[in-house]
Each structure stands twice: as structure tokens, then as C-alpha cells.
């Protein structure tokens, strides 16, 4: 029983492809929603050709502003929302194909933690039952499920005898979020999607939950997809970062690289909008002006061009591509300035 701090080799009985096989590969995922009353054929391009790779044992941070599609992406990854097109490969197996992995199997290995809100837990259920629900529907006996729930509650730092019989309204926000985490872990997942999991918490409590998430990842060998709008939190917890804008990936790379030298102007603007806790370092002028455009009928070409300080004709004419990434250290951005042949006057400088 050595839950040592050192990174230990990735071991899990369900592992198929080995450490080199990515946990999850998303290929050109797309999901559009029809909108009523916004003109004929109006669709929200919530997820519009999203590709990325999630490696085993890492934390991939997903950042972006409201309406960028990050929450829809999370639901598409669990097939809670079905993609219109595109493939999802989990540990080498394509999801939903006959020779691949079924959605039910996927959900046993990938779980999701929602933002703490009044609706994240069933108000009529004691929390121990909420946590035991997952194991129970996956075929465990009632007693066994309850035992698992008690173990997990201990792991997330809640005494089962004290907190197990309580109802959600008798818990503080931080405690509720611990229960949400416990509920996800009770199924025994290898990968956890954290959708704004700490965003609603107070700062002092957020720190507790972040520490807990890091510890759980270490002791349970988890892989995280961490969705948040808070850049500071993403920088702290992520190994790699994926930046989304209007349903598309605009930048992907190691967290340290992206935060040190962002390549996409949107990422630069996001980073430039971070507030300092030092009142002598106030931001005097905003990095970009205007609001993100509506995801219904997004701009042609590069979607960021309407707010980009470097937009040129080529940005309107052609949609920049993200480019190829090989491994964990690749740092790519979907911007014409990163591509020397794009015809942008600043090409090759970013």
C-alpha cells in the first residue's frame, strides 16, 4: 500500500493499450443545435470540429468563455449528448462501434463532476444513497454499494457516519462538491471530466477541493479533463491546456508553454485579462474590445477575426487549422500567423 508522491507507472487492470496509448482521442467532433425563432436553419455551432488527444495520467485543462462549447464538449465525450459526426476513441477502442467500446462501458470508465449548484444532487436522497447509486446500477449488491460509498466518502474527506445520512441542503457548498466527486468516483472511473467543478465555490473552499482533486488523482491513478473559465485555476492544475473559442480549438499545448508564450491572439487576450492581486499592477486598457459573437452564424474564416487586433484579409477568407500534434509537448495554435505560408503579413512570427 504505497500511495507515494512519486509518479508511479500507469497500472490498471482495464488498461488495454498501455501507457503510450492515449486515454481518449477526439476526432473532428461536431455537435450543432437547432435554434427556434432565430431565422430559418439557424444552428448553434456548439462543438464544431474539435480534435484533441488526452494522454493517460495527465490533466488537460479546457478554457474558454461562456458559449464556447466547452460544456457541450464534456457531454459529447460521455455521449450524454450525441455528436452529429466525428469519432471518439477511448483507450484504442472507438466508442459506439461494434468492435469498439459500448457507451455503457465508456460510462463505467469515464465519469463527470458537475458544477455545484442546487441541482447537482437529488434533494430527496441522503448523500450516501446518491454515492451508492452508481455502483448499484452497475450490478453491485445494496450492501456492497453502501460499503463502496462509505469508503469513497472517507477518501473525499467526509466522515460517513456524520455526513452519509444527511440531505444535500444540510451541507455547505464545499461539502456538496466533495459528495459530487465521491459520486463520480464510486463507479471506479479511470478518467474524470470536471465541468466547472470548483467554479461556484468560495475561494477558501475552492482551494480545499483543488487539493483534494490533486490527491485523488495521485492515489487513484486518474486522468482529468478539467473544464473551467478560471485561467489561474487551470494553470495550477493542468499539465496541458486546450483553449476553445466559438466551438473550435484555437490553441493546445503544455500549460507552462501556453501561459508563458501564448501563440493565438485570443489566448493572449485571455491571459491579458487576468486580474492581478497587486493593486499597483492594474490593467490600464483592455487587451481586446467587444463581446464574443453569438455562436449562431459565427464569422467566416477565423472566428476570432472580428475581435483580433491582427486580422487581415486572409483571416476572413480562410479558416486557420490547428495543425498536427505529436506528443505531450506539442504546442499548436489555429492562427494564420503561426503558419509561414498563410499569406498573413505577420506569418511565422507567432
Amino acid at each position: 500500500m504505497s500511495a507515494t508522491v512519486q509518479a508511479k507507472p500507469y497500472v490498471d487492470g482495464r488498461d488495454r493499450g498501455g501507457a503510450a496509448q492515449p486515454m481518449l482521442i477526439a476526432k473532428e467532433l461536431q455537435r450543432h443545435f437547432k435554434v427556434k425563432g432565430a431565422g430559418k436553419g439557424a444552428v448553434v455551432r456548439a462543438v464544431d470540429g474539435v480534435s484533441f488527444t488526452l494522454f493517460k495520467g495527465e490533466t488537460l485543462g479546457v478554457v474558454g468563455e461562456s458559449g464556447c462549447g466547452k460544456s457541450t464538449l464534456a457531454r459529447v465525450l460521455l455521449h450524454l449528448v450525441l455528436p452529429d459526426s466525428g469519432d471518439l476513441v477511448f483507450d484504442g477502442d472507438t466508442v459506439g462501434e461494434t468492435r469498439g467500446i459500448s457507451v455503457a462501458d465508456l460510462r463505467r470508465q469515464v465519469q463527470m463532476v458537475f458544477q455545484d449548484s442546487y441541482s447537482s444532487l437529488n434533494p430527496r436522497m441522503p448523500v450516501q444513497d446518491s454515492v451508492a447509486f452508481g455502483p448499484m446500477v452497475n450490478g453491485k449488491s445494496k450492501a456492497e454499494s453502501r460499503r463502496i460509498a462509505q469508503d469513497i466518502l472517507v477518501k473525499v474527506g467526509l466522515r460517513p457516519d456524520l455526513f452519509g445520512p444527511r440531505y444535500p441542503h444540510e451541507l455547505s457548498g464545499g461539502q456538496k462538491q466533495r459528495v459530487n466527486i465521491a459520486r463520480a468516483l464510486a463507479v471506479g472511473p479511470r478518467m474524470v471530466i470536471l465541468d466547472e467543478a470548483v467554479s461556484a465555490l468560495d475561494k477558501s473552499v475552492e482551494a480545499q477541493v483543488l487539493n483534494l482533486l490533486r490527491e485523488l488523482k495521485r492515489t487513484l491513478n486518474l486522468t482529468y479533463l478539467f473544464i473551467s473559465h478560471d485561467l489561474n485555476v487551470v494553470r495550477y492544475i493542468s499539465d496541458r491546456v486546450l483553449v476553445m473559442y466559438l466551438g473550435q480549438v484555437v490553441e493546445l499545448g503544455p500549460a507552462a508553454d501556453v501561459f508563458a508564450k501564448a501563440r493565438h491572439p485570443y489566448t493572449q487576450a485571455l491571459l491579458g485579462s487576468r486580474l492581478s492581486m497587486d493593486s499597483s499592477k492594474r490593467i490600464e486598457s483592455p487587451p481586446i474590445v467587444g463581446d464574443p459573437p453569438s455562436p449562431i452564424n459565427p464569422p467566416s474564416g477565423c472566428r476570432f477575426r472580428t475581435r483580433c487586433p491582427h486580422a487581415e484579409a486572409v483571416c476572413e477568407a480562410e479558416m486557420p487549422t490547428l495543425g498536427q500534434w505529436e506528443d505531450r509537448s506539442s504546442h499548436v495554435a489555429a492562427c494564420h500567423m503561426t503558419n509561414a505560408q498563410s499569406g498573413h503579413s505577420l506569418a511565422g512570427t507567432a
Binding site: L80, Q111, M112, S120, F133, V137, A184, V187
Partner: peptide
Amino acid sequence: LDYIEAARASGAGTLTIIRHHVLGN
């Protein structure tokens, strides 16, 4: 609500979800 989605994500079928999470509410 989120907890219904969470129940779906943990692999529960429609009838189970209705019985455990919908009826009571």
C-alpha cells in the same frame, strides 16, 4: 437537472432513474 444527467452518466437505465430520482421529486 444535473443529478439526472449524473445518474445517466453512471450507467443507470431510464426506469431506474425514474424510480430513484424522478418519482420522489
